[in-house]
Simulated assay, not measured.
Amino acid sequence: MTKKVTELESGKIKISEDVYATIASITALDTKGVHHMSTTFNDGVNTFFRRKTDHEGVKISFNDDGAIVVVLYISIAYGYRIPDIALRLQERIKTALVNYTEIEVEAVDIVVQDIIFDDFGPECSLSMEE
């Protein structure tokens, strides 16, 4: 597990990737229009081997300078504009990460994997059979 290390006069602070992923996940789920976090292939493999995490759909990496790159895999509720939600998510997650951890954020990438229609009932769902 990669950790970001901040050195101070009184010692070092190490923040785990899981902390960054949790902050991003909570912020995303608290954003209007985000239905839920989607799973990735790695999340599916981890679930198969019973290593489920609380931050499915979040991938964290760091560049050579120590700046963080966040990739979110989300499902959006029907009726919301995808570009608006993606932009709002990028801004909110960057702000949350900087406020809580003071890390430099290089990028917040949003991958919309699904649109959820269940809030409108079964008559609004789309099917490939029609």
Rank of each mutant, 00 (worst) to 15 (best):
E106A: 03
I93Q: 02
V5I: 15
S16N: 13
Y20N: 01
I60N: 00
I85E: 05
M128C: 01
I74P: 01
L89W: 01
V108I: 13
H55I: 03
F49L: 11
S127T: 15
D65E: 14
S61Q: 10
S61G: 10
L29T: 12
S25K: 12
I103H: 08
Y100L: 13
E7H: 02
I93L: 07
E129M: 03
K59N: 15
D109V: 09
L87D: 10
V34C: 04
R88W: 04
T6C: 01
S127H: 11
E104G: 02
S125Q: 15
G79R: 02
E56P: 13
T22W: 11
I76M: 05
K52Q: 14
I74E: 02
R88H: 09
D18N: 12
E9M: 06
D118V: 03
T47E: 15
E129I: 07
D118A: 01
T95S: 05
F62C: 01
G121R: 09
E102C: 01
D64N: 13
E91Y: 03
A107V: 06
L8D: 14
E91T: 08
D114P: 07
D18F: 07
M128Y: 11
V58G: 04
D43T: 11
F48K: 04
T39C: 03
S75Y: 06
I13E: 09
V105Q: 00
S25D: 10
I76A: 00
V34D: 09
P83N: 08
A86I: 06
H36A: 06
I13N: 02
N46W: 08
H35T: 03
P122C: 00
T47C: 08
L29R: 12
L8C: 07
R81G: 11
L89I: 03
R81I: 06
Y100T: 01
E106K: 03
K52L: 08
T95C: 02
K4S: 08
V69E: 15
D109T: 12
C124W: 13
V19S: 05
E102S: 01
G57K: 03
T39E: 14
E7P: 00
N42R: 12
R81N: 14
D64H: 10
L89Q: 00
L87Q: 04
K14L: 06
D114V: 05
F49T: 13
V5T: 14
L126T: 04
E129K: 02
V69P: 02
E104K: 07
G66I: 12
A28H: 05
T53V: 12
L87V: 08
I60V: 15
H55W: 08
T31C: 07
